[in-house]
Amino acid sequence: MSHLWRRHRHWLAPTLFILPGALLFGVVIILASIETIWVSFFDWDGVGPMQWVGLANYEQLFADPQFYVSLKNNVIWLAMFMLAPPLGLALALLLNQAIAGMKFLKSLFFVPLVLASVTVGVVFTWVYDPTFGLLSLIYGWFGATAPALLSDEHLVSFAVVIAALWPQVAFCLVLFLAGLNNLNEDLIGAGRVDGARGFAMLLHVVLPQLREVSFIALAVTIIGALRSFDMVAVMTSGGPFGSSTVLAYQMYEQSIFSYRFGYGAAIATVLFAVMAVFIAWYLRTLLRPEQETA
């Protein structure tokens, strides 16, 4: 027995190591997600029997104007979220000084990152309130009336995204500060000798060294944008009249409030397809350098 084990442990042990994690993840996450794709071919109210309808849910979905509103909002989220990495970098550049007390101040900047999105949503709903909100207060100082951001079908998504950017920028800030701490001092010194300063230095010497951090910041930001759900649910419930829904929220709404689990599953599947593109890109970039060295 022990002989057998000894002979095979080079592959048995790793298999045993990876099994619990792989099984758990495989069953609870991967299989469940695949099952959702299966459910999307059924008409199902979540309680009664499931009825096979083939592609009918998808046909309805592509004819549903709400679907295109959600899709458009996902694009807005994606585009606006692209601001998070540069803003995070800018903040990081501002904060990257070794002065007494800076450490504490820096960590205060990270606080939004650890807040629950429910909290962020509640806080920003209060900021935007057209009668009592902080925004209306600020507009009031200039004698103007604040727009009711969460009531305006054209502005609402932007307002929600700005709230969501708060923790996202904090996240990028943490990454970039870490990156800046890891810069190669020799290269910076060489740059300084060559007379590079300010923006040129940033562009030609610093940023190239931050490539990996930037990639992670970008990838996590993109995927965060596509996954957006909590903020929409807490701040607007997709309103006014569905103008701020995103795919994730529309899926939830259709399943939970309209009892259309099959249809909701179809939306989830489409969202999955969109995300798969980005996930594939991320994985490719992540794995490519290793392939080259391998």
Partner: peptide
């Protein structure tokens, strides 16, 4: 702007 406020408000 009634879509901004809940019934409580």
């Amino acid at each position: 702007n009634h879509t901004s406020s809940g019934w409580e408000q």
